[in-house]
Nucleic acid binder design. Structure first.
Length: 571
RNA sequence: GCGCCCGUAGCUCAGUUGGAUAGAGCGCCAGCUUGCGGAGCUGGAGGCCGUACGUUCGAGUCGUGCCGGGCGCACCA
């Protein structure tokens, strides 16, 4: 049990005793006071005062007087309508630091999800299109959700789902043949192939807008592709690999690690079979030549599941895929990390799955878009910022910065560190904001590494590592010596961390981990400037402070790990 | 037209699920390095929390109207 939980138990027991029968004190009635000067756990008495015709402030005063100190709580006081409990600092400090030291990477983990099996679908880019910063948000958010759920004891299947067929593929391939000769295609440098596909896609889209006829040609290509006709099939197979190879290396960089890869091309046929079955069962019907599911009775309108020309849609494949996943992994719950614009679509999909007697829990984890200052990202119009361009710009700037700081480092070392910082910076940028809010991506801001950024966190962690090295001695928990105000604050934050992990595991507001980490790092920076950790004249004190610094470093690392950010010993 | 989301400091965003004096980053101004890493720290200026009612002990948070913005609503993905 975590120290905070023990303290809470103590508080609840004491409150129960003081209040007597007729009122049930529960864990969620307790809060954290806004300022640690007030205390570490607060009990607002409003609820309790409701039945009685008495002033809440009086009741709080009375309660505070009735309760005496315990093992974890030393001071009980009232402030207005609140009863505040202050940690017995020595006990709590010692226990927290020891627990962090013992649990290390697992500090913060819980068993809430034990025995439960969850499948998270995320990282669903389309082949033949650019991988842009919007995709980064999706992949990185999904991975963070996976990480947090695993930390909470769930068995998680992380599933990527790649859009490797459909109209966009036909368009890209048509464009490739239209705008380039076979020779030119062959001569595209290996590392530019994926990029070229994206460019061609945009060019083709613009061409179609001006030439009606092209539309027909592309539709023809799509039908030939679905029928497996050459030379299109061969070209598809080859170019698909171009994109996939790129995705794999991007995922690896971003610490996005799916356990399974699904492809639209693999579920397309199954989807069409399922649609046929739905027609005979009467769940679906024909309408204007297309196949639809009528969800009007659920206020969800009409759900289109097959085009009138018999070719497939997202829905065709998603229906089949849900059952595929179920057959293979038997998850208790499926979570879909997809942008908010698909909300209605997912409601329709889930309602249809229920009609097909799929009974397990389905969740659409909606996040909002990444916009550019010029407006929405659009592969169609070419208004995009490619992931790799951002990364390269960041790395370039960070190489320069790192070189300045470490003139003795070898080039390889500099590049590697710069890259880690760049990726950490990008991931942090995508996760620091609430998933439900729009991110306006500003290149200039992305290239600033001060303040509420990934590098700030990495810097704090590296600094702690540096102190440890410099001290040249082992830490030793001596809680009695850690009585500084900031030490108390830091301990309090560490004690709260497990709660946070559990909360995010339930609600997926990943950004609060980033926020927690930043606030904690900031607090440590303040501490660092106010107090000399290494005190040459006082070894005991140094060891005690080192123990605290180590704990802070460890838990910061843990929080970064949940976000999928690699940390550095030096930077 | 119907539905969903948003409006908090000049800009970008938090705000403990209705609680204590509304916070942070950037930017701006003034400082800090012969002391563990200055990607840092300290201080300052900057707010009718879009607006009007309502719900109650208490509203940035909940409800309704209005204003302003974004997104979605059948063959795109």
């Amino acid at each position: 049990m975590y120290t905070k939980d023990s303290a809470i138990q103590e508080v609840i027991t004491a409150l129960k005793k003081a209040i007597g029968k007729g009122f049930e004190v529960t864990v969620d009635m307790l809060e954290t006071p806004p300022d640690s000067k007030l205390g570490d756990i607060a009990f607002p008495v409003f609820e309790l005062a409701k039945g009685k015709e008495r002033n809440p402030t009086e009741i709080a005063t009375e309660l505070a007087a009735k309760i005496g100190p315990g093992k974890y709580i030393t001071k009980i006081s009232s402030a207005g309508p609140y009863v505040n409990f202050t940690f017995a600092l020595t006990v709590v400090t010692e226990e927290v630091i020891k627990q962090v030291a013992k649990m290390k990477k697992t500090y913060g983990n819980s068993k809430t999800g034990e025995g439960k099996n969850v499948l998270v679908e995320y990282a669903q880019p389309n082949t033949h299109k650019e991988f842009h910063i919007g995709h980064v948000r999706n992949a990185v958010l999904g991975q963070a959700v996976v990480n947090v759920m695993e930390a909470n004891g769930y068995k998680v299947i992380a599933a990527s789902y790649i859009g490797d067929v459909g109209a966009h593929v036909a368009k890209a391939l048509w464009g490739l043949k239209k705008f380039m000769s076979d020779e030119e295609i062959k001569d595209i440098p290996k590392n530019e192939r994926a990029k070229k596909l994206g460019e061609i896609y945009t060019k083709a889209t613009q061409f179609v807008d001006e030439h009606e006829k092209a539309k027909l040609e592309i539709a023809e290509v799509q039908q030939k592709l679905e029928a497996g006709e050459e030379p299109w099939h061969k070209l598809w197979k080859e170019t698909r690999e171009w994109s996939l190879r790129e995705f794999k290396s991007i995922f690896e960089e971003l610490n996005v690690a799916p356990d399974v890869w699904y492809f639209e091309s693999e579920v397309e046929k199954k989807g069409k079979v399922l649609v046929k079955k739905m027609l005979t069962k009467g769940i679906a019907k024909k309408s204007e030549g297309a196949t639809v599911v009528d969800l009007a009775d659920e206020d969800l309108g009409i759900f289109l599941i097959l085009k009138s020309d018999g070719s497939s849609l997202y829905a065709t494949k998603d229906l089949a895929l849900a059952f595929e996943k179920d057959r293979k992994f038997d998850p208790d719950r499926q979570i879909f990390v997809v942008d908010v614009r698909q909300s209605l679509y997912f409601q329709q999909l889930f309602a249809t799955l229920r009609k097909l007697e799929y009974t397990k829990k389905l969740t659409h984890l909606a996040y909002d878009m990444v916009n550019l200052p010029e407006g929405a990202i659009s592969s169609r119009s070419g208004n995009i910022v490619r992931y790799e361009d951002v990364r390269d710009a960041m790395v370039l700037k960070l190489v320069e910065e790192t070189q300045k700081r470490h003139e003795d480092w070898k080039e390889k070392e500099v590049t590697e560190v710069a890259k880690t910082i760049a990726l950490g910076s990008m991931i942090f940028m995508m996760l620091r904001q609430d998933p439900k809010s729009i991110i306006t991506f500003d290149m200039e801001e992305a290239l600033s590494f001060e303040g509420f950024t990934g590098p700030y966190l990495l810097y704090t962690i590296a600094r702690i590592e540096s102190i440890k090295k410099k001290a040249g001695m082992k830490s030793k928990v001596e809680a009695k010596l850690l009585t500084n105000r900031l030490e108390h604050e830091l301990i309090r934050r560490l004690a709260n961390y497990p709660d946070l992990v559990q909360d995010v595991g339930a609600h997926f507001q990943v950004s609060s981990i980033a926020q927690w980490a930043f606030d904690t790092a900031k607090l440590f920076a303040e501490y660092y400037h106010e107090i000399q950790i290494i005190d040459e004249k006082n070894q005991e004190l140094t060891q005690a402070r080192l123990a605290l610094a180590e704990s802070v470093g460890q838990v910061l690392k843990n929080s970064m790990h949940l976000l999928g950010i690699d940390v550095l010993e030096e930077m």
